[in-house]
Design a protein around this nucleic acid. Structure first.
Lengths: 197, 197
DNA sequence: TAAAAGATACTGACCGTTCAGTTTCTTTCT
DNA sequence: AGAAAGAAACTGAACGGTCAGTATCTTTTA
């Protein structure tokens, strides 16, 4: 890899970690350069603005998480339920390996959902995600696996809500939660509820 | 009500709306004073710092949402499942009436979860919430209503995760979602899952 | 040796905060 | 009741500091 590419990667990685930990507005360019061990001039010879850094991270999230998840699920065999299991597994594994990147979308969207520069790309990622899950739910309903009375869009939204929320709670309680057990809990609840029947 | 109290209320209300919409660091004192129609000096004669504003809002959230929810649920009759329904109803109604205040905790916690000044009070509110729900789940298990194999703490966490996530998604899609239908969807899924059985 | 990458030093704007002074309201005195 | 005095609320300008971004110079790399 070229040196400049490596530097860019380091900058993006540092920016990602800081954005997730302190928010976009709470992170200064100086914070980022200090973390990478560079100066402002160096950073601005790679990126034109702080905003471009954010857009690059959004893009990275899309290619590394969304696209990869769709690829994995589409290539897998099985009915809609099994594919939904796949998504949950993929998300969990990805979250374990790339905590920051995974948390990024949820956290930054809350902060920047009304920012004219960032709202459109952020919403695009969400929309793509939702449509993918929604289609899967629709398949499951057609296959007679899921309850027919449910609206696929709303179930997809609920799925994403649960996924977002679980991530949020996990970050807040990283040290007190057994990740594996937490995941199996929320998976069971999402699929079967927790009321006895 | 005294004039100063009214002004303080206006300031807090404006700060709340802006914090929720643009984040804590993304909101300036000037933004707030502009919205209220005051000057900086006036604001600082009521509040000692920007941080105090935030702490006051956290406190307001606690008394108006958490405490009130506990009171409502504790005073209600019925078993654990019915009380859980109460919580969901209360949260939904509260969210409809006080969108900003309800969204506040979720959003600001993501931004400020690593800030030494604000993390403790924010986590306290969450802890109180979780313990309350957790005890309710435990009651439900004891009463034979809920699945015994589940850990009450993790179910409570999942409940809050879903609640947080639903709020988040709702804010992002305020205009495209039928609130009532969305709530009933996530309630059904949480209680009974969406897989046919 | 030319171009890319980085260091240094700077800009103007805006940040949260302070404060001396003015206006507005409330109480006291005659 | 009406003027005087005092308190409370607010103004507007300024403070030091930090922000994102830029201009200029030096080093490294190919």
């Amino acid at each position: 890899m070229k040196r400049s590419e490596e530097t860019e990667k380091k900058i993006i990685q540092a920016a990602l970690e800081l954005f997730v930990r302190k928010g976009y507005h709470g992170t200064s360019i100086n914070d980022i350069t200090r973390k990478v061990g560079l100066t402002k001039g160096a950073l601005y010879s790679h990126f034109s603005s702080k905003g471009e850094l954010l857009l690059r991270i959004i893009d990275e999230f899309k290619t590394r998480f969304i696209d990869e998840m769709m690829r994995t699920v589409n290539e897998s065999q099985g009915n809609a339920l099994e594919k939904l299991h796949r998504i949950i597994s993929f998300n969990s594994q990805f979250a374990f390996k790339n905590q920051d990147l995974c948390v990024f979308l949820t956290f930054l969207t809350t902060e920047l959902s009304t920012d004219v520069d960032f709202e459109p790309p952020l919403k695009n990622v969400y929309r793509e995600y939702q449509q993918f899950v929604s289609r899967l739910i629709q398949q499951g309903i057609n296959q007679g696996l899921f309850k027919q009375e449910l609206d696929p869009d709303l179930v997809a939204l609920t799925f994403m809500a649960l996924h977002d929320g679980v991530l949020h709670q996990w970050v807040l309680n990283r040290n007190n939660i057994d990740g594996q057990q937490y995941i199996s809990t929320f998976r069971n609840i999402f699929l079967h509820g927790f009321v006895k029947h």
